[in-house]
Every structure is written in C-alpha cells, then in structure tokens.
C-alpha cells in the first residue's frame, strides 16, 4: 500500500518539484497551497505525514499543528520552512511538530526525514532496514553484514542509513555534507570532509561485502547501486 503525504506549500514550482520527487520515491502526494484547503483534505483522509510550510497566504502554518495533532496524533508533521529562527523551531516542536527542515533542503534529506517519521510511528515493530547482505537495525543502531556485527562510527552509520533510504538515487556531496554535519558546507568553510567519510564508508562496505555498492557518479556524487 502506498502511503499518501499531504504537502501544504504555496510556492507552485516547489510544490511540483517536491510532489514529483515523492511520487518517484513511491509515495502518493496530495498538494495544496493554503491552510483552509489543507484542513478540508485532512478532514477527509488520514495522512501519515504532513509536510507543512509556515508562511502561507491564509496564515501561519504553526497554528495548524495543534489541529492536526488533535485529529490524528500519529500523523507525522514535518515543517518545511525558510524561517530559520530558533524560536520557530522551538514553537513548532512545542506545538507538536515532529521535525523541522529548513529551505532550501535536499530532496534526499526530505526523504530520509519522512522515512524516519514513518519508522517512528511504526511503534512495536522492529526498525530494520535490509539491503542485500546488509542489515541495519535502527533501534540499536547496529549494522550486521552477512550475519556478522560490523562496527561503524556514528557518522558512517548515518551515511549508510542515508544511502539505504535513498538507494538508487544520486546523492551529491553537498547533500551528504549537510546530512552528516547538519549545516551547509559554506558555513563551516569546508567541503572536503565528506570525502574522508565517504572513503571510510566505501572501504568498510567493500571489505565486508566484497562488493562496491557505493558508486561515484560523474565525480560529484555517490549512489547506492542496487542493480548488482
């Protein structure tokens, strides 16, 4: 069963880009550009995830969060906003939002966050991601390859999870950097750290699986190749 995501975003271009990405990633996506329309949709259907912009033509998305949570507590609310104020984050999270993604974000990052939310509300079930011989247990944050426990550093683990969620997609070094460091590389004056992480991760995966799953793409990004 495909999961349907409700996207409330007033920028039509961005709305289209996000929804087409989500559909390509195997979700259904209902789009709307205002709180009123979003409310009408939400009353009719049960969405596991709501992507919510804050600055909307008919009001502040923040005020909409308690309403969503009051109707269906297990809906994951992910704020997508250009407002990067700590106050907004705190307000959003206090009002019941589950995550906050600041624009401009990488679609692969959006996907990772959606997956994390879906897993979070999947209470009771084991949170395990399987990829060929690699098994990633997100509850204990451990990786087993061919039945053998392999130790990964925190950052290597984050990267591997990111690849497994976005398998088959090109992940740019910028997107990887932001995922691992939570910041744009410009702010840290550095963009080469990600090569180090990637080299370590690739070596480790190759050493334990014997296969070079993570491929370099055009020299600017990486991709978890699941064809072989």
């Amino acid at each position: 069963m495909k999961r349907t995501i409700l996207l409330i975003e007033d920028d039509k271009n961005l709305q289209k880009a996000i929804s087409s990405y989500l559909i390509n990633s195997g979700y259904e996506c209902d789009c709307t550009d205002s709180l009123i329309k979003g409310r009408a949709l939400f009353e009719k259907y049960n969405y596991p995830i709501v992507l919510l912009d804050l600055n909307l033509p008919d009001g502040d998305g923040l005020e909409y969060i308690p309403y969503i949570k009051s109707l269906w507590e297990e809906t994951g609310v992910l704020i997508i906003s250009a407002r990067d104020k700590l106050e907004d984050r705190i307000d959003g999270l206090n009002l019941g939002a589950d995550d906050f993604l600041v624009k401009p974000f990488h679609l692969s990052e959006l996907n990772a966050r959606i997956q994390a939310l879906l897993r979070r509300y999947n209470i009771g079930k084991k949170d395990i991601i399987q990829f060929n011989e690699i098994e990633l247990d997100n509850t204990s944050q451990t990786v087993t390859i061919n039945g053998e426990l392999v130790s990964f550093s925190r950052k290597e683990y984050d990267l591997l999870l990111y690849f497994l969620i976005n398998k088959g997609r090109v992940l740019t070094k910028e997107s990887l950097f932001e995922h691992v460091w939570g910041e744009n590389s410009v702010l840290m004056n550095n963009s080469d750290f990600i090569y180090t992480h990637m080299n370590r991760l690739r070596k480790k995966v190759k050493k334990h699986t014997g296969k070079d799953y993570i491929k370099t793409v055009y020299g600017f990004g990486y991709k978890l190749d699941y064809t072989n």
Partner: peptide, 29 residues
C-alpha cells in the same frame, strides 16, 4: 534571505531530480 530560500530550494530540488534521471545525457548532467 528568506525569500531567496524557496526559489533556491526549487533549483536544487529540480537538479537533484535530474541527477537520477537516466535519460539526461552526461554532458547535460
């Protein structure tokens, strides 16, 4: 800064989509 982020998000996201599109030739990528 705020107003710039949404169009920037759009540009980045569009590019990301194209990266994984096999029909786009390499030089265009």
């Amino acid at each position: 800064a705020h107003e710039l982020q949404t169009p920037l998000a759009f540009i980045k996201n569009k590019c990301e989509e194209l990266f994984s599109d096999d029909s786009v030739p390499e030089h265009a990528i």
